[in-house]
């Protein structure tokens, strides 16, 4: 690929401006894909730097109740990967900011790894986050993702310890630091010792690293951003969508602006 990946460009611009990244997640197709399209544009307009579109899966083992229910709402509305690609195509006419897919490995595998990454490149997806594809199984998609210039963003967890540097070295775009043990969902307290966990990355020549899982308020976002290059917010946004449905666009925008302000 000759053109630079949008994720790299995004972090370079943020660094130049002295800002931390706000990465936001919505489940694609919750409550429907038209709303997803409006939500994404609103979130980008109000301060989101990168957006993850969650591809709904029947059995999302890394998700808490909030995103489990969002997946179900989306699947019941008839969302499919092909329809999500169509939404991405529409979005690409209106925004040039990084779009990621967060999804389970079976969705890629069943679609056909080659076909999937070719479509990502064609429609303008910049990276994928696959929570059930650990470092050891990276070859499942690595060569194909590389071929099409799509970044595979790896995750590290509070249990990763001496795996952190190796995984960070393999991650492209950024490294997703899971804030706490357990599944996705808002948490009142995040107690992980990030200074120790992330020590191997300090001063090193690694990709930016961003903390996610459980961040639900501007205060938490600010605190977490102190340890890293950006924060990832998912369930707190999905909760607003669960509550307001198609009317969620403005409240999600307001929440986005509040999250971005201290970053």
């Amino acid at each position: 690929m000759s053109s630079k990946n949008r994720i790299d460009r995004c972090f370079e611009e943020l660094k130049a401006r002295g800002e931390k990244a706000l990465i936001e997640f919505v489940t694609a197709g919750d409550p429907d894909l038209e709303t997803t399209e409006k939500l994404v544009l609103e979130m980008f307009g109000r301060g989101a730097d990168i957006i993850e579109l969650g591809v709904p899966f029947s059995d999302p083992i890394a998700e808490g109740k909030t995103i489990q229910k969002a997946s179900l709402r989306s699947l019941n509305a008839g969302t499919t990967l092909d329809k999500i690609f169509d939404t991405v195509k529409n979005l690409r006419e209106k925004t040039d900011k990084p779009l990621l897919l967060m999804m389970y490995i079976n969705t890629i595998f069943r679609y056909g790894t080659e076909r999937f990454f070719a479509k990502c490149a064609e429609y303008g997806i910049d990276g994928v986050i696959v929570p059930d594809l650990p470092f050891e199984e990276r070859d499942e998609i690595a060569d194909t993702a590389d071929k099409y210039g799509i970044y595979n963003i790896f995750l590290v967890a509070p249990t990763s310890a001496d795996r952190v540097s190796t995984i960070a070295a393999a991650s492209k775009g950024f490294l997703y630091v899971v804030s706490s043990l357990g599944v996705t969902g808002t948490r009142s307290n995040i107690t992980t010792d990030f200074d120790t966990l992330l020590a191997p990355l300090k001063g090193g020549n690694t990709v930016p690293y961003c903390i996610g899982f459980g961040i639900s308020s501007p205060e938490q976002a600010k605190k977490m951003a102190g340890y890293c290059d950006g924060v990832i917010v998912g369930s707190a946004i999905v909760n607003i969508i669960a509550d307001k449905g198609r009317e969620a666009v403005k409240p999600v925008g307001d929440f986005t602006a509040a999250l971005k302000a201290p970053l």
Partner: peptide
């Protein structure tokens, strides 16, 4: 950290990072 636990192409360790350790 190499691939282990295969029966032909089947098997493997497709689990979230949190449980890898």
């Amino acid at each position: 950290m190499d691939k282990v636990g295969r029966f032909g192409k089947y098997g493997g360790q497709y689990v979230p990072e949190t449980v890898m350790t």
